[in-house]
């Protein structure tokens, strides 16, 4: 179980952190949440019956909610995204217009309502199936699908507004 957990962390490190960050609100607390979740998983004798990665995402989510509740935080205050990548020649890796569009998209994702934001993270970055996301978040499948579609719609609108 230990090596499998390590593998999940290596594969989904950024997504796990993003999920925790989206809930806990700061990098420091998000790291605590991820760490706490893995400590609990390592100590636990329970054997997950489904996908281990979903199980880990659920543990991190619970841990982040726990920490967020203790500090009464519910909104993300730290962006989920890092700095734009810089090419080897020191120039931005994409055109100015593309960079601006990406910036808009980042801000739009950051400003999504938390319930939708976590679904976007789990779906697009962790690439989990909707059924798994439904289980992780304890939300009915139809609701997850609706929230996801609505979130994409909002994001597209924001981008269109930028382009227009």
């Amino acid at each position: 179980m230990r090596s499998e957990l390590e593998q999940v962390y290596r594969t989904h490190r950024r997504s796990l952190f993003a999920l925790a960050l989206s809930i806990a609100g700061s990098s420091e607390l998000a790291e605590d949440a991820v760490h706490d979740a893995f400590v609990r998983l390592m100590k636990s004798s329970a054997v997950p019956t489904g996908r281990l990665d979903s199980y880990v995402f659920a543990a991190v989510r619970n841990s982040a909610l726990d920490i967020g509740r203790r500090l009464q935080r519910s909104q993300s205050t730290t962006s989920l995204f890092g700095e734009p990548e810089i090419a080897a020649d020191g120039e931005p890796a994409c055109s100015l217009e593309r960079a601006e569009e990406n910036n808009q998209l980042r801000q739009a994702i950051d400003s999504l309502e938390p319930a939708s934001r976590e679904i976007v993270i789990l779906r697009t970055f962790a690439e989990l199936p909707m059924s798994e996301i439904s289980q992780i978040t304890g939300t009915p499948l139809k609701t997850v699908e609706t929230r996801y579609r609505r979130a994409l719609f909002v994001l597209e609108e924001r981008l269109r507004g930028h382009v227009g």
Binding site: F17, A18, F81, G82
Partner: peptide, 8 residues
């Protein structure tokens, strides 16, 4: 969305 770099 996937192409955006998540915070590390």
């Amino acid at each position: 969305i996937r192409s955006l770099p998540l915070r590390t």
